[in-house]
Computed example of a mutant assay.
Amino acid sequence: MRERAKRLSQSQLDEMPGTRLAQLNDKPQKDNKTGHKNISIDVRNGTTWYRVSVTFKRVRHQTRKRTLEEAIEAREALREKYWPNYKK
């Protein structure tokens, strides 16, 4: 454990244990159809939903919203809940 801790940067050590705050600021993957990180499109019975999925300490927190704007607001609310020191 000590050897691993020596390899971590100071910013990683300042974060909550078991999380990667830097991952929130990464760009979305190339195949992401919404253009927003942590938001994907879910089509069920012909109805389009936007699924918000944020993982915190190996637990996935998800919600579904009807519009992209609502999904973005939900994602930001989840980020603020689990990462209070998160900055856009």
Results as ranks from 00 to 15, higher is better:
M1N: 11
R2Q: 14
R2Y: 04
R2V: 10
R2N: 14
E3G: 10
E3W: 09
R4M: 12
A5E: 14
R7C: 07
Q10G: 04
Q10C: 05
Q12T: 08
Q12Y: 05
D14A: 15
D14C: 08
E15V: 07
E15P: 03
M16Y: 07
P17N: 09
P17G: 12
G18Y: 07
G18C: 06
G18D: 05
R20E: 15
R20F: 09
L21S: 08
L24F: 00
N25S: 02
D26M: 00
K27I: 03
P28F: 02
P28K: 00
P28Q: 02
Q29W: 02
Q29P: 01
K30L: 02
K30M: 03
D31A: 09
D31Y: 14
D31F: 10
D31S: 12
D31W: 15
N32L: 09
N32R: 04
N32S: 15
K33A: 07
K33Y: 03
K33E: 15
T34R: 06
G35L: 08
H36E: 11
H36A: 08
H36V: 15
H36G: 03
K37V: 00
K37S: 01
N38W: 06
N38K: 04
I39V: 10
I39A: 05
S40H: 05
S40I: 10
S40D: 10
D42Y: 13
D42R: 15
V43E: 13
R44K: 13
N45T: 06
N45W: 13
G46C: 10
G46P: 10
T47Y: 00
T47H: 02
T48L: 07
Y50I: 11
R51C: 11
R51K: 13
V52S: 03
V52D: 02
S53A: 15
S53G: 14
S53L: 05
V54T: 07
T55C: 04
F56T: 02
F56W: 01
F56H: 13
K57F: 00
K57A: 08
K57D: 05
R58M: 06
V59I: 13
R60W: 01
R60N: 10
H61M: 07
H61S: 05
Q62L: 08
Q62T: 15
Q62N: 12
T63P: 03
R64T: 12
K65C: 15
R66E: 08
T67F: 02
T67N: 00
L68A: 01
E69M: 00
E69K: 13
E70F: 03
A71R: 00
R75V: 01
E76V: 04
E76M: 07
E76Q: 01
E76K: 06
L78I: 10
R79F: 14
R79P: 01
R79W: 08
E80M: 14
E80Y: 12
E80C: 07
E80S: 14
K81F: 07
Y82T: 13
P84L: 03
P84D: 05
K87C: 09
K87D: 10
K87M: 10
